[in-house]
Design a protein around this nucleic acid. Structure first.
Lengths: 343, 343
DNA sequence: TTGAAAGCGCTAACAC
DNA sequence: GTGTTAGCGCTTTCAA
């Protein structure tokens, strides 16, 4: 390993001078600087980030804390968000350390231990629920932190998400514009912040439309496809007058699609189905799903950026609503699916 | 920040003794050890990994090098592999540093610089092609390295993948067992090692079955859905006698599905389609795709494990074939799709 | 404009 | 068993 010492020796200057030359200080003779740079590249010198970290007492690293990295997840949310986080981190030359709060990997370390031993400067948190122990730990520490999809903020905490409330209202309004009056809501779970907000959006638009909010039209399915299948089947049997479903996730919407089909109803003719997320499957399934598209890569990028600003004490809003898109496909509108004709 | 010095002072011992107590050395009085441990936990002391790295000159970290992190990828390969890599790394208490060789993030750093400045002890490489500049760099350096899906090995390089050759033969044999004689091959690209091998498997089984290998039955589509659509459309029009397609990836198979449908043919009745990978969409699309399932999480795990062994100079095979699974769905067999009846 | 010296937080000989 | 000393590779006062 070639160190700064080797460069200094070869260049016939002190270590200090090499350090200054390499870090672009101005109080150095241009000739010496060039000379040192030459030697350094000749020797193929790369400074040790570890040594620099130790002396500067800054790690230039962020933690990316996720509830778990599922090996065979049905969506690419983790990977998309990470892509965004990675992109911004790279721009500011920060490193990302992943920390999965996975009960399966029996937790030897607490989140705080992890953060401290690596000297992580801030963290981005995703996929954690408000009733999670880690959530409290994060909120109570004073480490700069940006939450994705959890609307909490204080002096060191920010949050990034789409405007779930308005998006849900948009979805319900779309269903109503198609003539639907009996619109059910398939929600996730109460411990998920987004669930609550999407539910509120649903209720508010139902009311605004002059429709009644019926408790039997509202079920929760834990963001799970199979649970949704069961719950929607029950729902359709109990309330056959329902002609539209607003689902708080695509996965649940896909379960609903199956349930409706198994009840002998057709989508969208008998029952229209609206999802949330626009995961990959949604455009490939039959019928393709109308949904709210979330740009997780963008959310990751913006989260990392906000974290950087908070870290540097810059006065920026600690909350950010990333744009979303309402995607209309055949699960709510008359079909033009080319497959229909050929199969 | 509480350091080992603070603990030493509070415990009334030397820094060395604290270090020894904390690292479980035996040459230390049990009483002192307990005392120090108490003080340490009282003070909420967490050792600095950075400092330890510097002095021990080992980073306990692996690089995970990918061609790019696509924000909206159509598969979860990156995330699945990372999950596996992460899992093993956690078991041995190593850190993962991601390095995306993304032309879009204009490369300020070379892979070697990255590796050296972080003192990464070994790397796992995925999604890189053999004509990639990084590939050569990796092979020429002597850093321990495990490649996923590239069959290269030497004293410091290992590789992990499924047995692509046999898997391809299985796929073709399956198609033949259904009575198909005119089986085309939709391949990826020659620079991808797996492409070449899958092609060889195809050819070998076609020959073994006593069928003719026809060059016009073999097209490449760059692992791309839309390219596959165009190529397959051409193919079907030119060679209408073809009744089965072996595709080197699910994505291309999905493009093929569309192409066949647009040619007025039906899958699987007129043309059977076989894919490769078993990405998520494949089971949700209509008709669901027969394919070879690859367990990327397992590949990531095994790759990390092999890397660890190589690193430690253990005498293990530098090549590993992870089990695959042949998945038969309706794109090659008569349909039982519940959707069919309801839509 | 340059260098000497101190030190970041930790580990590892070596002595006691 | 425990402490002293040196040092990992780098940055940063402070002097010269």
């Amino acid at each position: 390993m070639v160190t700064i010492k080797d460069v200094a020796r070869m260049a016939g200057v002190s270590v200090t001078t090499v350090s200054r030359a390499l870090n672009g200080y101005s109080d150095i003779n241009e000739k010496t600087r060039l000379h040192i740079l030459n030697i350094a590249s000749e020797l193929d010198f790369t400074p040790s980030i570890t040594a620099r970290r130790l002396v500067k007492r800054e790690s230039r690293s962020f933690g990316y804390i996720v509830s778990s990295i599922e090996p065979s997840s049905k969506h690419t949310i983790f990977q998309d968000t990470l892509a965004g986080v990675y992109k911004f981190s790279r721009e500011i030359d920060y490193q990302i350390l992943i920390f999965a709060v996975d009960p399966l990997l029996q937790q030897k370390k607490s989140y705080l231990q992890f953060v401290r031993e690596h000297g992580v400067e801030g963290i981005i948190v995703q996929g954690i629920r408000t009733d999670d122990a880690y959530y409290a730990e994060v909120m109570n520490s004073k480490l700069p932190c940006v939450l994705i999809d959890i609307p909490a903020q204080n002096v060191h905490v920010g949050s990034v998400s789409i405007d779930n409330y308005t998006a849900s209202r948009d979805a319900v309004a779309h269903l109503a514009s198609l003539g639907h009056k009996n619109i059910a809501c398939i929600n996730g779970k109460d411990a998920a912040a987004v669930s609550v907000i999407r539910y509120q959006g649903y209720v508010s638009m139902i009311r605004e439309l002059g429709l009644a909010v019926k408790t039997e039209y509202i079920v929760t399915a834990d963001f799970n496809e199979d649970v949704a299948y069961v719950k929607v089947k029950e729902l359709i049997e109990k309330c056959p007058e329902i002609t539209a479903l607003f689902c708080a996730s695509d996965l649940m919407a896909i379960g609903a699609l199956r349930a409706i089909s198994d009840c002998g109803r057709k989508v969208p003719e008998d029952v229209a189905v609206f999802g949330f997320d626009d995961i990959l499957i949604s455009s490939y399934i039959t019928p393709p799903l109308s949904t709210i598209r979330q740009d997780f890569s963008r959310m990751g990028y913006d989260a990392a950026q906000m974290l950087y600003e908070i870290l540097n004490g810059n006065n920026v809003p600690h909350t950010k609503a990333v744009p979303y898109e309402i995607i209309i496909r055949e699960s709510t509108t008359p079909s033009k699916n080319p497959y229909k004709n050929s199969l």
